[in-house]
Amino acid sequence: MLQIDRRILSHFDILLPILVLPIIMMSYYLISEISTTLADKQLIYFSIGLMSFVFFFLIPIKRLEWLIPLFYWLTIILLASVDFFGVSKLGAKRWLDIPFIHFTLQPSEIFKPMFILMLAYLIKQNPPDRDGYGWASFTKISFYILLPFFLIAKEPDLGTALVLLLVGYGTLFIVGVNKKIWITLIVLISASTPFLYHSLHDYQKKRIMDFVSEKPSYHVKQSIIAIGSGGLNGKPKEEATQTHYKFLPIATSDFIFAYYVERFGFWGACALIFLYAFLIIHLITLNLKLRKDYFAQVITTGIGLLLFVYSSVNIAMTIGLAPVVGVPLPFFSYGGSSFITFMIFFGILENTIAFRFDPSHRMVKY
């Protein structure tokens, strides 16, 4: 037993918390500067996130692999039920109301871990051959990617739907798909772009038009002013007027990167981006260590791509290089859903890495 414990500890990836903790600490520091009330709530989210990490780190995930399809379809049912029983907020129906406790649940957040776990399950059950997946296997896996895409996009939540679409097909690209399939898809998507644009909601078209127009929208304009005013070294809290005079909108969540740069300047922005880049590169390069374990490979790749898409889109959005969408900066933006979801992801990841040599965590077939 002691030998097993040593092996578990020796395979625990200590670099992940080393890279993530500074991001979390800086996030709390900035949020507490803006609002002590929000900072207190964020501590609750941190606590729930930590408990979620410990739970998913300790449960024998590989032993329970056979349950993954069941939970995938349960979350799909929750996504589908939003259309019938969902609660509307700000023109979007994305939440389910839980009776008696006055609490709303966003199924798309719960679905994210199940999405990557289902991809890992499917690819492990049917790994690609030497030339990559052919049309039959690619079509089968695409069904599990496109079904939630259409359900989430219908809410409408095109941002989350596109993120999952990119993560799903990005994972397949890394795992291996015949290049003729990619060429065919690129031609089809390029030809259908006008039809896809006309199918968007009016507010989604407006975001795209704001992005391509010469003048940025009000939100982006104030964000760029905040970033520019930070200079090389940033400003003291009292002089960060863009945020504290409420010119910068949603400064604790969607545009928290702009406030961070206003406070810590260009060099601070470089340090934060370096942390994200190092974290993402570390996750992707873990594939070299896990090359014989498709289940672990897909999980590390999926989480790495998810972090890349979220962080790059959020940062690009704040400087006017991407349309404004409700995509948080992972571990940095205020809020519980995103933080807890990523802590679940990292609990699953550490579980698959640390316990991969523990016989008690091997899959049981039924």
Results as ranks from 00 to 15, higher is better:
Ser190Thr: 14
Pro328Val: 14
Ser312Phe: 14
Val309Trp: 11
Ile123Met: 07
Ala354Cys: 10
Gly231Leu: 07
Ser229Ile: 05
Asp97Trp: 07
Gly335Glu: 04
Leu78Ala: 14
Tyr203Met: 01
Thr341Gly: 09
Gly320Ala: 02
Asn126Pro: 05
Phe84Cys: 14
Thr285Phe: 07
Ile303Cys: 06
Ile315Phe: 12
Gln3Val: 14
His282Asp: 15
Leu288Ile: 08
Phe308Glu: 04
Phe278Val: 13
Phe332His: 06
Met317Asn: 06
Arg362Met: 15
Lys289Pro: 05
Phe149Tyr: 05
Gly159Asp: 06
Trp135Asn: 04
Phe143Glu: 03
Tyr144His: 09
Ala136Phe: 08
Lys292His: 15
Phe150Ala: 11
Val364Tyr: 09
Lys237Pro: 04
Arg130Leu: 09
Lys206Asn: 15
Ala277Leu: 12
Ile183Ser: 10
Leu349Phe: 09
Leu188Lys: 12
Glu214Arg: 10
Ile123Cys: 06
Leu349Val: 02
Leu166Tyr: 15
Ser312Thr: 13
Lys140Glu: 10
Leu119Tyr: 02
Lys289Asp: 07
Asn351Lys: 03
Leu96Arg: 12
Val167Ile: 14
Lys365Leu: 10
Arg362Glu: 12
Ala136Gln: 13
Ile116His: 00
His219Ile: 02
Phe345Gln: 12
Ile353Val: 06
Pro99Lys: 04
Ile31Leu: 09
Val87Leu: 12
Pro249Ser: 04
Leu30Trp: 00
Lys205Pro: 05
Lys237Asn: 03
Ile68Pro: 08
Ser229His: 04
Thr139Lys: 03
Ile141Gly: 00
Pro359Phe: 01
Tyr197Val: 01
Phe247Glu: 01
Phe211Glu: 09
Ile208Asn: 12
Phe57Pro: 04
Leu162Phe: 08
Met1Phe: 09
